[in-house]
């Protein structure tokens, strides 16, 4: 298969970027999208040009490091799929493919397609944890029974990989899906109750401080989320946030 790639090139956070055109040839159906990018970079290096910088690591859809906006969609055309798990069989031979970085004020470009998502780390640092030290003698694990449905729902929220597709997709560059997934995981579990109200306040405050936008319920984030994190989490977070304001806890 052959493709024409239109790729965002940007030297650094301060420099101006531009779209550049690159042809790639000899791509096979079973290559992943990132392997196609490897082929392009191999070609660029051999031609003495600057290879395209992009983030990637596990290449099995779980680390959350890969992050491309492909033909106007986060992680490309397939649902519940990260870019590293997207295969070239999902494209038509001869197609022109547009590849851009995540675009959000809170995610400045590092170079080309790689962006800085440390804002997500800072949101977790603001309260995305249960305050327990590691200790030689905590309670036996089975001393805290958790109803299976709650455990399953907490797990579903906890599967967020922190890739930032929700932010890149949202017209407001809102991080509500990411934040609400972590808030929900702990809100659903007995272990999360003692800090439930202060957690939601601190995390939402940090989210605002980082410059993410607000949620206007378009639902695009849920559609583009590679892990299928549900919008219900945002509703749950809003309820908790409101409650925390009212009760002043």
């Amino acid at each position: 298969m052959d493709f024409t790639l239109k790729i965002w090139r940007q030297e650094g956070p301060q420099e101006e970027g531009r779209m550049e055109t690159y042809p790639v040839t000899g791509i096979t159906h079973d290559m992943s999208f990132l392997e196609m990018m490897d082929v392009l970079n191999d070609q660029l290096i051999r031609d003495g040009q600057d290879p395209v910088a992009f983030d990637h690591d596990c290449r099995e859809g779980i680390c959350g490091m890969c992050s491309m906006f492909i033909n106007g969609e986060a992680h490309g055309p397939n649902r519940k799929t990260t870019t590293c798990q997207l295969h070239m069989r999902s494209f038509k031979d001869g197609e022109t493919i547009y590849i851009e970085p995540w675009r959000a004020a809170a995610f400045p470009v590092v170079k080309d397609l790689a962006v800085d998502r440390s804002a997500f780390d800072r949101i977790i640092q603001s309260g995305g944890y249960v305050s327990v030290n590691s200790s030689g003698n905590p309670l036996d694990a089975n001393a805290i029974p958790v109803p299976k449905d709650d455990a399953d729902e907490a797990f579903n929220a906890a599967t967020c990989i922190g890739c930032g597709a929700c932010v890149a997709t949202c017209k407001n560059a809102s991080a509500m899906l990411f934040v609400s997934a972590k808030v929900s995981q702990f809100a659903l579990l007995p272990q999360g109750q003692p800090e439930r109200m202060s957690r939601v306040q601190r995390m939402v405050d940090q989210m605002d401080k980082e410059g993410f936008g607000n949620c206007t319920n378009t639902g695009a984030c849920e559609v583009e989320c590679p892990k299928g994190i549900s919008l219900d989490n945002i509703a749950r977070m809003n309820r908790d946030y409101l409650k925390s304001q009212v009760t002043g806890e």
Binding site: Y129, V132, P138, D152, Q191, G192
Partner: peptide
């Protein structure tokens, strides 16, 4: 025990 107390959803 430690992981459960942290809220790991096993």
């Amino acid at each position: 025990d430690q992981c459960v107390s942290q809220g790991v959803p096993f």
